[in-house]
């Protein structure tokens, strides 16, 4: 990493740390939501952009994490902090189950079966009133005191998000991450150099499920509610758009995409009921004109600046 990047990241983190000091309460909440959606989108990108896996229904892992955390908090007498570990672990375990069922299938079959199985989970959550609260969801979840104020919830979200991003960044840079990117580019070749493609993909799915679950548990802290729409398939496609908009071959792209979309949604929704229409049009424009996303575009321009002469001088 260059010095500029480190300085930039440091400055960014300091600004994020200072937000609650000068921003009104609503914006603190908004930034918390952006952070956890960014984490969610980044976890999706771990398998999508870096793994090349058609993870069409990622929201279900987010939902399982949130519900897992909530049910631990409301239905058991176990120490509350444990819930924030159990939720993500439940997501990871669920990622393993879905992975084992779907991993043998080819790309599009994988995605379509996953979206279908995820919808089953949604349907169960939606109907199981006695356990999940059905379509009402669960409100007023008792949060441990130290996390219950908006400010402390913000700081908790910030710290956990940054820590998770750091871990995912390490994973992408690790030999496992290299292998995963190799598999994305060429699964047959990867097999032929001795990589067990399916097992690597399975681990990636479990990891992505885990971090999606972390994002889900953060939502519980920030909003104190869960509801079935958190694992509805349309949310999954929205997260996919975040990755695409920010740039799905870049590490920070999904975070940027999440920021743009969550912020836009908040402000557009204040003026009109037709947010979906706006989002749909934005998506079409991105697909048509920015297929590599915002950061992908920037990187391309940036690279072109000093890559081209080298090629010509070949």
């Amino acid at each position: 990493m260059s010095r500029q990047t480190i300085l930039g990241l440091g400055a960014g983190i300091i600004v994020l740390l200072l937000f609650p000091v000068f921003l009104p309460r609503f914006y603190v909440y908004l930034v918390s939501i952006i952070l956890l959606y960014g984490l969610l989108a980044t976890s999706l990108n771990l398998v999508l952009g870096y793994g090349g896996i058609f993870q069409f229904h990622h929201a279900v892992f987010y939902g399982v994490g949130a519900y897992g955390t909530t049910l631990m908090l409301t239905k058991t007498g176990l120490p509350p902090m444990l819930a924030f570990i159990v939720g993500p672990l439940a997501s990871a375990a669920f990622g393993l189950v879905i992975g084992i069922i779907c991993i043998r299938l080819s790309k599009l079959y994988f995605g379509m079966l996953q979206i279908s199985l995820g919808s089953l989970v949604w349907a169960i959550v939606y109907r199981w009133y006695s356990f999940t609260g059905g379509d009402d969801g669960i409100h007023g979840i008792p949060i441990p005191e130290m996390l219950s104020s908006p400010k402390s919830a913000y700081y908790y979200t910030l710290i956990i998000t940054l820590a998770s991003l750091f871990v995912m960044w390490k994973i992408i840079r690790s030999p496992f991450g290299s292998a995963l990117q190799g598999i994305r580019d060429n699964p047959v070749r990867s097999e032929m150099i001795g990589i067990n493609v399916r097992m690597h993909q399975l681990l990636a799915l479990v990891l992505a499920g885990f971090f999606a679950g972390v994002a889900g548990s953060l939502f519980v802290v920030v909003d104190n509610t869960v509801f079935p729409d958190m694992l509805f398939w349309t949310l999954s496609l929205e997260i996919l758009i975040m990755c695409l908009l920010g740039g799905w071959f870049t590490f920070l792209g999904p975070m940027l995409g999440a920021a743009v979309i969550v912020a836009l949604r908040t402000f557009v929704s204040a003026y009109t009921d037709y947010w979906a229409l706006v989002l749909g049009i934005i998506m079409m424009l991105v697909i048509l004109f920015l297929p590599n996303g915002i950061l992908g575009y920037v990187e391309e321009k940036f690279k072109r600046g000093f890559m081209e002469p080298e090629i010509e001088g070949q």
Binding site: I171, S174, G177, A179, I195, H200
Partner: peptide, 9 residues
Amino acid sequence: MTWNLFTPS
């Protein structure tokens, strides 16, 4: 080594 998750490649 491809199961190594944390050492930079």
